[in-house]
């Protein structure tokens, strides 16, 4: 167990170093950092001075060590577009993304489990068939189309919910939250549904399949033989056992929820890290791209590591994972 944990931890560190190398090479070689700082008519001598002051004359391994040392302390350099430190830009926008991702995950889990249980227990009802059809469409429709559809329906036509932004936010120390104001909560609804819909269909299909499997097992038959109520069998015995893989998948998916927030944040102009990243790609703001890659990788690797270790703790039978395609 300890050996397994150590091996996985070393692997995770290896991945982070690999991502660090990619991130550094983007930062250093894709686009000249000097050009971004000086103006067009700066004389060559001055350029050289800037080059020296940035340490770009040092050997590449030294530069990499410096970059990595800074990155560990969350220093990612200065954004080309905003002329501000990347770390403060990211910190400013992280609460928005995390709030959105957590709300989307909760939405997906609650409705995904409810719909999955229903379509497993009442397989032949019309509603269960509708759920199945919706899940097929949910997997086929691109996220941004779902967002546009929801905006057209609830913002343009009905006028119930805002179509962009976070609404009013409350500042709690360095964290800003939209959960404490009415307009903030209203602004959260449509983006959360858009972002969570794919996870919802995934969880619904998983719960349905797991429920159907568990209901066929011997211990459920034994529970029926003991004369337990249907309710106790379904929710006390069957559902409990389906929840382990569901929580695993939801945990693994949290990383990609944060990555997919890029699309949702663009549709709803949500002021989070994803929107910052898209603007960075559009404007070729390499420091932000490199830092975002490092941050998201850190989140991904940490989640994968924790889930992998929990796997063996909770249920050694679990080996399969479900991954998101696009």
């Amino acid at each position: 167990m300890l050996a397994f944990t150590l091996r996985r931890a070393i692997q995770a560190i290896g991945v982070m170093i690999a991502v660090g190398v990619i991130s550094f090479s983007m930062f250093r070689f894709a686009g000249d950092p000097v050009n971004q700082i000086v103006s067009l008519d700066t004389p060559p001598a001055e350029r050289e001075a800037v080059r020296k002051s940035l340490g770009l004359d040092d050997p590449v391994p030294v530069q990499f060590a410096r970059y990595f040392g800074n990155a560990v302390q969350f220093k990612f350099g200065v954004s080309y577009q905003f002329r501000q430190p990347v770390s403060s830009l990211l910190a400013e926008r992280m609460p928005a993304t995390l709030e959105l991702a957590i709300c989307a995950t909760i939405f997906a889990m609650v409705f995904g489990i409810l719909m999955g249980v229903y379509s497993a227990l009442k397989r032949d009802t019309v509603l269960a068939k509708i759920f199945q059809a919706v899940s097929l469409i949910g997997i086929s429709l691109p996220t941004f189309l779902i967002g546009i559809l929801l905006i057209y329906l609830f913002s343009v036509t009905l006028g119930w919910l805002p179509s962009f932004g976070r609404g009013d936010v409350v500042r709690l120390g360095w964290w800003t939250t939209g959960l404490l104001t009415l307009s903030g909560l209203k602004a959260l609804i449509l983006p959360s549904i858009t972002l969570g819909l794919f996870q919802l269909t995934l969880i619904m299909r998983l719960v349905r399949a797991e429920m159907l499997e568990v209901l066929r097992t011997d211990y459920i038959r034994f529970a029926r033989a003991r004369g337990l109520t249907t309710r106790a069998i379904h929710f006390g015995h069957a559902l409990k056992n389906t929840l382990v893989p569901v929580i695993t998948v939801a945990g693994l998916q949290f990383g990609s929820v944060i990555a997919f927030a890029i699309i949702t944040e663009t549709v709803f102009q949500w002021p989070g890290m994803g929107l910052l990243f898209v603007q960075a790609v559009q404007n070729v703001d390499i420091p932000i791209m490199a830092a975002y890659l490092l941050m998201v990788s850190l989140i991904f690797v940490t989640i994968n590591l924790v889930v992998d270790i929990l796997y063996t703790v909770v249920d050694p039978r679990l080996r399969s994972t479900i991954r998101r395609p696009a």
């Binding site: 894709a30 990383g255 990555a259 890029i262 960075a280 790609v281 998201v296 991904f300």
Partner: peptide, 19 residues
């Protein structure tokens, strides 16, 4: 495989633009 394809595609795109 740990990273969603869209993230990789966006990064490739951004790097290509910058180069």
């Amino acid at each position: 495989l740990t990273f969603p394809a869209i993230l990789i595609a966006l990064l490739v795109n951004g790097v290509a633009k910058s180069v």
